[in-house]
Design a protein around this nucleic acid. Structure first.
Lengths: 336, 336
DNA sequence: GAATGACGTCGAAGCGCTTCGACGAGGGAA
DNA sequence: TTCCCTCGTCGAAGCGCTTCGACGTCATTC
């Protein structure tokens, strides 16, 4: 293994000069820098990560805690993870993968052993047991999602409340007066996962504001449940002409069910969804939807951490504005 | 931050004794060990990862390279990743996440900087550009999947060839004489991803051996493609009574298509699949399938690495035997 | 023309841990 | 009894890097 002293000798400078040339923390003459870079290339020098971490008390590693529980949409998690890794690399950082299962002990471990410089926590519950810990840890962290009490923490996510509103505004703008929200499985609400409830709040508020009759229906992530719910909606709310779906696995089965019950989409029923774009485009009827901006959230969380590591203050809440893409599943209400 | 010298002082021993008590690399009297453990607990001591890595030249971190290309089934990748993390933790190791995108440079970087002790590479191509690099790296690695030339490498995966065979044997055993394989999207074969071709090989060999008429059909991961293929199969191979599906996203749409074309499953057509169990159970007709043993593969790859790190020789190839679970989609051929 | 300060570089002191060699005490074998 | 080994512990020497203070050299400034 070639070490910094060898590079220094080869370039005819001292090790500290090599270090400063690499880090840029002190000015180095262009000529010397060039010589050092040549030596590095020639010798194939790679600084030892552990030595660096020890001397600088920076590991250049970020921890990412991914959820693996029921009710969360795995491909979206993966997109978060990938965008976090990509963004981290742009800042010369790597990403350590932790599972939810490791829990608080895992967080404490990687923080206390200085394995990581900072942490990103996904799938935050409204009252998450990890919050007190994150507040006391000596390392900065960013939450993807919003707990009930975000004070003292840094959070980023899609503005789900605005997303719920936007879906309603869109439907209301098309003349729909009776709408329904098909939500996540009941356990997601029981667990008090913030985003699901925020959608409900925004949806309800916008409906009230627009004088639209609204209802909310949690739904299991099963095709059979979708079918049952479709039947029930037709029976119980015959005037229904607009549906907001916030439940990925059910989107396609639900539209299928409505269609086989004789409703045309969007002729008789307009459907909007909050879901990944790739899903919205793959359904039997391309669905007007608000995307989960996984890339932006992932990259944004890394940027926030980098700022915090650099000592720059950051806002406690970062809410990404929802963007609605109109596709084939929504249309103006036909006043029959 | 509390360091090992403080623990040593508190316990009335030397730092080296604390270290040996922690690592177990030299005998320590029960009494001393107890005293040290008490001090550690009382002081809340956590060894500094960087210092440890520097002194011991072991980072206790594994690199995991995950694919993010088209045609791979994301939930399965995630299951691999989670099982790798879980298994690594059992051996007191952490996992660094690398994306395919980082490519060879990423592998070289984490290896050369001693950021990781060993590497796990998923989604190996038949002739993968990373293989020469992995062979020369000074750190052990394990491939999930089999390249064309596995010599000098350590590989682990489901025995896809045997899986293809087993599907055919099952169908043949039920009396089916004309079968078809619905495979992955064409680009998967073009890319020469080993597992897809291995399935074809096993499938074909078993069909020939059993005197079964067989054909192979790559299929895009789109519902529309599934429908087209179903129609084509009925048209071109009217005597068809058995289908093997090796293409997750298409499984459900394909069965849907067959049914809406008037075929009963399994009455007229028996369907088997090679896919994750959770998918097989969720299809409209629960499908007789061979599971992708993601947990076993993930855990197995970690075990292999640990052995290699410990200096124990390991076999170059580890093929996990396929296990077929009979569900509702296969039945004895009705000789009409 | 002396004082000031930025620039570019060096040397040395650690960062917190592991590990090697050494050494005293005790137990068996000869 | 002597020799040798094992057991349990210690001290010291690094692991490879960063960083702090210092210092000489110029270019400014008044």
């Amino acid at each position: 293994m070639v070490k910094i002293t060898e590079v220094a000798r080869h370039a005819g400078v001292s090790p500290s000069t090599v270090s400063y040339a690499l880090s840029g923390k002190r000015p180095i003459s262009e000529e010397t820098r060039q010589r050092i870079e040549d030596s590095i290339r020639e010798l194939g020098y790679r600084p030892h990560a552990g030595a660096r971490a020890l001397a600088s008390s920076r590991s250049n590693v970020l921890a990412l805690v991914v959820p693996l529980r029921a009710g969360i949409h795995v491909p979206v998690v993966m997109r978060f993870a990938v965008s976090v890794v990509t963004a981290a690399r742009r800042h010369d950082h790597d990403v350590l993968l932790l599972t939810q299962e490791e829990g608080e002990d895992g967080l404490r471990r990687v923080a206390d052993t200085a394995l990581v410089d900072a942490l990103i926590v996904m799938d935050v519950q409204l009252r998450d047991g990890r919050l007190p810990l994150l507040r006391t840890l000596d390392r900065p962290s960013v939450l993807i999602g919003f707990p009930a009490e975000p004070a003292g923490l840094t959070c980023i996510d899609l503005d789900f409340e605005a997303a719920g509103e936007l879906c309603v505004e869109h439907l209301a703008g098309l003349g729909h007066r009776v709408i329904a929200l098909v939500g996540s499985p009941p356990e997601v609400y029981v667990r008090e996962t913030g985003f699901a409830q925020r959608v409900v709040r925004g949806y309800t508020a916008a409906a009230d504001r627009n004088g639209v009759a609204s209802s909310v229906h949690p739904c299991e992530a099963e095709p059979a449940a979708a079918r049952q719910l479709a039947e029930r909606l037709l029976r119980e709310r015959p005037a229904l002409t607009g549906v907001v779906v916030h439940n990925e696995p059910v989107l396609d089965p639900l539209i299928d069910a409505f269609q086989s019950l004789g409703l045309r989409v969007p002729g008789d029923l307009s459907v909007t969804a909050i879901c990944p774009d790739e899903l919205a485009g793959r359904v039997r009827v391309p669905v007007t939807s608000i995307a989960i901006p996984a890339d932006e959230v992932g990259a944004g969380s890394v940027e926030l951490l980098m700022k915090k590591l650099g000592g720059t203050p950051v806002p406690e809440a970062t809410l990404l504005p929802p963007r609605l893409t109109v596709r084939a599943s929504t249309a103006r209400r036909t006043t029959a």
